[in-house]
Amino acid sequence: MQPDSSVSCAPGLMAAPSVAGSTLLTAQVHAKLSERLFVAAVWLAAALVAASFLWIVADIAFHGFAKLSWSFLTEAPRSSGRKGGISTILVSTLLILAVTVAVAVPLGVGVAVWLSEFSRRSSRTARVINIALDVLAGIPSIVFGLFGNAFFCVFLGLGFSIVSGGLTLACMALPILIRATESGLSAVPHDWRQGAAALGLSKAAALWHVLLPAAAPAITAGLLLGIGRAVAETAALVFTSGYVDRMPESLMDSGRSLAVHIYDLSMNVSGGDQAAYASALVLIGLLIVINAVAIQLSNRFMKSRIQPA
């Protein structure tokens, strides 16, 4: 057998004392070096990702806590938000979210139930709806803003209002909610459906008493992720729910959300940085809590994934 240099990459083989010995040694050194470099590169990438996240959160927390206080949360903004607090902003944000949830939940759960319980994956309608949802999930928020402005504000005559903003966000949150509900329903074992059918339960009763309760944690997790996306949103709201920072008197009033408030303070109000930091801290805090609960819920759901006994 000829000494073949291709075996030289196998570690632990002793080389025969020959001319091949030195090339084998360099090959081993090379392999070891590139292995080290690769591992170092992976660690570096991970460190950079973690560092950028921590830098952002620490910077906002450090500056934000200096300004944040109970009165900041409970007072109305004065002089374009430089003074006072964010009470009216928080109320507007909550109202916009309430509209979003009220519209998105029934629609989203309905679509998910139809897709997973009443349609066949391969049917043409189901395929078209699935593709539409995927595309909808990818559409940039500024385009939702354009649409919301043209459709809800102008065409339906709702004007710059909390309703317009909430409806626009509902369109954005729907795909997230539908996908989460679907995955929750598909995790329910098939035996349960057959068991319900064997007991003479109608499909509606089986859904209400068996399938939806079993999928509840996944639905909640999806709902929280959707709410998180809605709370974080700015571009879709600027031209739908507007800029007004007064206390909204009805859902037809314009209301400024927390994210829009941060945008306005940092771009259009000189000397608004302190208030912007504190508002950003409130927003980040909300988002981290909402998303952490959602992750926790879906993790636990996946782990205790209802097993057939």
Partner: peptide, 16 residues
């Protein structure tokens, strides 16, 4: 940490 990073508002990134 990566999942939370995905959830942070674009306006917060912009502000930072």
């Amino acid at each position: 940490l990566i999942t939370l990073l995905a959830g942070i508002s674009s306006v917060v990134f912009g502000f930072w």
